[in-house]
Design a protein around this nucleic acid. Structure first.
Lengths: 162, 162
DNA sequence: CAGTAAACATTGCAGAGACAATCAATCTTC
DNA sequence: GAAGATTGATTGTCTCTGCAATGTTTACTG
């Protein structure tokens, strides 16, 4: 009889499984805290901050909706609504893409830039206090390279199923 | 003049900031993929799987609502609705706590246990393929200890604000 | 160059979660 | 041991998100 317990077939080594669980816990807790702090101190949702950061890093402070959705890891429709809300508050604006009339740019406004500059210290302090300062230099390097590898693999795998 | 740029005051070292970004990316992509795979192959939401795992690990296959909510990192009301849905499908059931009549247990049913056993290989394979197999033994150990530390600190910090 | 296919963004809809208010039971304290 | 505070869970309501369908524009193909 070829009786094997399922757990034998698809097991994950204990150290790796523990790493996976720690990964989930750490993410849930840290993002929760950073989100609360940003909301409490700057009245800014973390998702808005994320949009501001990515637009600020882009050429001309603008990005195509599709591209921005990919970068902040949100669905297209999710981004449409998010930009709706932020546009209502004057943090971003939509502009037509001249070369492709289907396309739309989301663009940072001066008010959006100012909001980002005002909020960044709060967020960066949070990242430092709740994440960066708890890592040694060596650990940070290991995390970065290992997690980059994982993110890259996942991005490719996701591409296939989309 | 004591003019310091804000970024000087609250900066995060590049290696740590890169680690933070890789952390966010890796989490978003891997959970997305695992969730899709579990949904596609077992028609089970990841949040349901998570409940099944934690109940399975608990004594008598049951946990107080509060305790379960803490473990799966969900709000109390969120868990109430989640257990509603799972109870409707017969995967769990509610039972009264004998010692405290305010309390409610969520308890694994045989069908729930069977569903867990059926789904576990899919999930574990996903964790292995998209996470564990991409780490060396040393990396896994570093991740576990570093992320445990971060999770523990965040848990304490969150406790204060609740 | 006509006709189909693909890409971009938005909209309708429904699922899922958080917060605050509520109800019931237990604990505290005088 | 009664009044008030606290705890456990649920419910009402609102926000956010994803999926599928839609309208519009562009790209491909015979």
């Amino acid at each position: 009889m070829f009786t094997l317990r399922e757990s034998t077939i698809t097991s994950v080594p204990p150290a790796q499984l523990a790493a996976w669980r720690a990964f989930l816990e750490a993410h849930a807790h840290t993002t929760e805290i950073l989100s609360r702090e940003l909301k409490a101190e700057e009245d800014l949702p973390l998702s808005w901050y994320d949009v501001l950061v990515h637009l600020n890093e882009a050429d001309d402070h603008q990005l195509r909706m599709q591209e921005l959705a990919d970068r902040i890891l949100l669905s297209k429709s999710g981004l449409t609504r998010l930009i709706d809300r932020m546009e209502r508050e004057g943090l971003v604006l939509r502009s037509a893409c001249p070369s492709d009339r289907r396309g739309t740019y989301a663009e940072l406004t001066p008010h959006g830039l100012e909001t980002l500059r005002r909020s960044a210290p709060t967020h960066l302090r949070g990242v430092r206090d709740h994440f960066a300062s708890l890592l040694t230099e060596e650990e940070a390097e290991v995390l970065e390279s290992a997690l980059d590898r994982i993110a890259a693999a996942a991005r490719e795998a996701a591409q296939g199923s989309r």
